[in-house]
Design a protein around this nucleic acid. Structure first.
Lengths: 408, 408
DNA sequence: AATACTTTTGTTAAAAAATTAAAAAGATTG
DNA sequence: CAATCTTTTTAATTTTTTAACAAAAGTATT
C-alpha cells in the first residue's frame, strides 16, 4: 500500500527538469513551513536560482494551492518585497507523543501552527501493542472533530521511549509485536507513519525550533524517568546504525552497582534518573529522613513522583536537595564523558528533572571541571530547554514532514 | 597573502552559470582523484546533468589540461564508454605526518598516486615551534628533487598529535606559538596549509580508502603512544566545535588512578595506551617479572618500546601477554561506552598496539559483552585497519584536497 | 561464422528552460 | 521632490535538455 499525499515526488522516470523543479518546490515548502513567510530574495539564498525562475516556481505553487501571497515585507529603502507563505490548509501533519504514563496528540497545519490543543490520554505504555487501538481511536476522533480531509494529512509522527529503529519501524523495548509497530499504525491509520525515539525527537525540536537552531554540534539530555541523549552533529540529528545511538543512561558508571532493568548493573540510570530519584526518595521516607517530602505525599511512599521531589526541594527540603545534588554530580561526570567525546557547542537539558535546574546545574558544572579537559569543558554552555514538555510532538511532526519531503 | 593554485573558484561576483560550472568541475576532479578513471555516465550519477552537458564540461577540462581520455572501459553489451581521468601532472599535494618521534613526508599527484616514497625524518615533536624549519627544509628538498613546479602544488596537509583546531590552524598541545602554527607553515612554504589531528586524518583515510569506505557510521581508535578516536557520522568526519572531539584517551576510567599528563587522574590513557604499556613493562622488568622481554632489550628497561612488548608477546612472554590482555579489557570497557553512545556499524583499530590484535581483541570483545547492551554490542564489527602505519599522510593529503576543492 | 538483434554510448539539432541585463515599479530618505 | 535603493517584470540571449539518430560493441540465431 502506497500513500498518495506526497506531492512533488521526483521519480527517476521523470525528466531531469521536472525532477529538479519538484525538488526545489519541496525545498521551498519545507522552508516556509519551518521559517514562515518569506520574500523571493530570501528563498533565493538557499535555492541557488535566478529571480525569474524562483518567481515562476512560486507562481506554480500558488496556482496549485500550496502557497499564497501574504502582502509585503519591510524594506530598508526600496520597493517592498512580496511575501510568500504556505497556505494553512495546504496540508496537515499529526504528532503523537507516547510517554510512560500518558499519550498526547496534536495536529499542525502547513504553517506549523498547532491547530488543536495538546489532547492528553492517560495511558501506561505496554511491552506489547495492546494500546494501539486506543491511541488510533483517540487520534481519529481529533481528526474528525477538526474535519480535516484525510488526503490532506501528509502523515503521522509518533515519538516513544525505547530502542526505536525508525527505518524499519521497530521498537525493541516497548510496543513489540511481530510486524513492525510503525507498519501496524500505518495500516490502521491508512497514512504515512514515522516512529522515533523521544530523546531524538526532542533534540530535533531544539534543532529546528529551540536553542540549537543556529548551532551545528549540540547534545540534548532528556532527564525524565529514564535518561535519554539526543545528538546533533554537523547540523543534523544523528541516529547511528540502527537508530539506537544515545544510550547514555546505560553507561556503566558504578562498580558493583544496582541492577538496572537493562540487565546490567551500575548504569547511570540506576543512580541519576527520575526512577532512581523516586526509589531513593521512597527509601528515605521509610527511614523518616524527610518531613517536608512526607507532608507532600501524605506520608505514603508509594505516592512519590518526580515532581514531588522537585517540589520538596524548592520548598527547602534538605533531603531532596542533597539527593538532587548527588544526581547532578553523576550526571556531570557522564556529561564530562560526552564533552570530551563530542566537543559540543552546548548541552541542553530537558525533561522533568531539568525543572530542578537550580539544584542540579551547580554540581554538574563542578563535576565537569573535575573530570573534563579545561579546553573542552570551560567554555561549554549548559542550559535548560525553553521548549517545554510537549516539544516532542512538535519535533516528531517536523521530522515526519522532512522525511516526507526529503524522500525523492 | 592569498595562494593562487585553486582553480575553478566560485566567487559571488561570478554569474550563476559560471559558479555552477566551476562547482561541477570541482566535483568531477575530486571524484576522479578519489575513485580513478570513469565514464561520463558514471559521473552523471552524482552530478545530475544531461549527457551533452557533462561531455562539454569534460571537454573543457581536457582543454584546460586537467583531465585526459584514457581509452575505453568495458561494456555489458553495447558501445564501450570513453574513460576520463585526472592528468597525473594536473596538480600535486603534499602530505606530512608529524609523530611523537618522527616526521614523514610524501607527495601525491592528481591521480592520488604517491610519487615519492615515504621520506622519514627522525625528529621528536616539541612543545614549541623550533622544529618547523627542519621540517620545511626537509620537505622543500623533496619537492625540488622531484622538480615539481610550485604553482602545481595545490597545498600541504600536515597531521600531528594534540588538540588541533584546523579552522584556526592552532595546536594547543604541541608546536604552540604566538601565531597559529598552520599560518607559520603557510608563510614559510608560501602555499595553502591544512593541519589536522592524527586520529582524525586516519579516520578520514579509512573513510576514503579503507574499511569505512561504504559505511556511514564508523569509529576508528588509534592505539599508539596515546589513544585517539576518529568519528565518522552520517558519512562525514566529525570534529566538534573546536575540532577537539574524540578525546577518548582522557575519559576518567579509574577512581584514584595514576596522574595523567593532561592534569587529571585515572584517564584511560594512563592504563591502556602505549605510554602506559611501556611504563608497566619497565616496572615489570625492574621486578624481574619477565625474562623474554629482558632479553629483547638487553635487560635495560630504558630501551623498552611499544614494539618490544608486542614482540615479546608474540614470542609467548606471559607477562607481556597478560599486560596486553589487561589493556584490552580497559579498552573494551571504553569502547562499550562508545558503542552505546554512537551505535556505529564498526570500529576500526589502528596504531602500533593494534598490531597485537590477537592479544587484545578477545578481552575487548569480552568487555563489550559485559558492559554493552546486546542490541548494540552483539553485531558490531571490530577489526584492525588494513591501511598500514602511513595512512595518516594519505588521509591528510586527501583532506587538504577536499578542503581546497570544497571551499566555494 | 555470418547475420540480425539488442544494448549502451556518443552526437546533433531542435526545443525548452534559465539566466542576464535592462527597464519599470514601488518605497524610503534627506 | 529628487535621489537612492530594492524588488519585480520583461525581453533578449544563452544555456541546457530532449529526443532522435548514429556509432560501436556484445549476444543470439541461423
Amino acid at each position: 500500500m502506497n500513500f498518495p499525499p506526497v506531492k512533488y515526488s521526483s521519480d527517476s522516470d521523470m525528466n531531469l527538469v521536472e525532477q529538479k523543479n519538484n525538488s526545489q518546490k519541496r525545498k521551498i515548502i519545507k522552508h516556509l513551513f519551518l521559517y514562515g513567510a518569506m520574500a523571493n530574495t530570501d528563498l533565493g539564498k538557499f535555492v541557488k536560482l535566478s529571480t525569474p525562475k524562483i518567481i515562476s516556481l512560486l507562481n506554480e505553487l500558488k496556482n496549485e494551492g500550496m502557497i499564497e501571497e501574504l502582502g509585503q515585507g519591510s524594506s530598508s529603502g526600496g520597493r517592498r518585497p512580496n511575501l510568500y507563505g504556505n497556505k494553512e490548509d495546504a496540508f496537515y501533519i499529526v504528532g503523537i507523543s507516547i510517554n510512560i504514563y500518558q499519550t498526547s496528540v496534536a495536529i499542525f497545519n502547513a504553517k506549523n501552527q498547532k491547530i488543536t490543543g495538546d489532547h492528553i490520554l492517560p495511558l501506561t505504555i505496554t511491552h506489547g501493542i495492546s494500546i494501539i487501538d486506543t491511541i488510533v481511536q483517540f487520534t481519529e476522533n481529533i481528526i474528525q472533530e477538526k474535519q480535516i480531509a484525510r488526503d490532506k494529512i501528509w502523515g503521522i509522527g509518533i515519538e516513544m521511549p525505547g530502542l526505536v529503529d525508525s527505518e524499519t519501524g521497530i521498537n525493541k523495548t516497548y510496543m513489540v509485536s511481530k510486524r513492525p509497530v510503525a507498519e501496524v499504525f500505518r495500516k490502521k491509520f491508512g497514512m504515512e507513519v514515522l516512529i522515533e525515539n523521544d530523546a531524538k525527537t526532542r533534540a530535533f525540536a531544539e534543532l529546528r525550533f529551540g536553542a540549537a537552531q543556529s548551532k551545528r554540534n549540540v547534545l540534548t539530555v532528556h532527564l525524565d524517568w529514564g535518561i535519554g541523549l539526543g545528538i546533533i552533529v554537523n547540523g543534523k540529528l544523528y541516529k547511528g546504525r540502527d537508530g539506537f545511538a544515545g544510550e547514555f543512561g546505560h553507561l556503566p558508571m558504578v562498580d558493583n552497582g544496582i541492577l538496572c532493568n537493562c540487565g546490567k548493573t551500575g548504569c547511570l540510570e540506576t543512580i541519576a534518573s527520575g526512577t532512581a530519584i523516586v526509589r531513593m526518595a521512597k527509601e528515605g521516607l521509610k527511614e523518616k529522613r524527610s518531613s517536608l517530602l512526607g507532608q507532600l505525599v501524605d506520608n505514603d511512599p508509594e505516592k512519590i513522583e518526580i515532581r514531588s521531589v522537585v517540589q520538596a526541594a524548592n520548598m527547602g527540603d534538605q533531603f531532596s536537595i542533597s539527593m538532587l545534588a548527588n544526581v547532578g554530580q553523576w550526571l556531570g561526570k557522564g556529561m564530562a564523558y560526552l564533552i570530551q567525546i563530542f566537543n559540543p557547542e552546548s548541552i541542553i537539558l530537558g525533561g522533568q528533572i531539568s525543572e530542578a535546574s537550580q539544584f542540579i546545574l551547580p554540581p554538574i558544572q563542578q563535576a565537569i571541571h573535575i573530570f573534563c579537559n579545561p579546553e573542552l569543558g570551560n567554555e561549554i554552555e549548559i542550559k535548560v530547554s525553553e521548549l517545554g514538555s510537549q516539544s516532542g510532538i512538535q519535533g516528531v511532526a517536523a521530522l515526519l514532514l522532512e522525511r516526507v519531503l526529503d524522500k525523492k
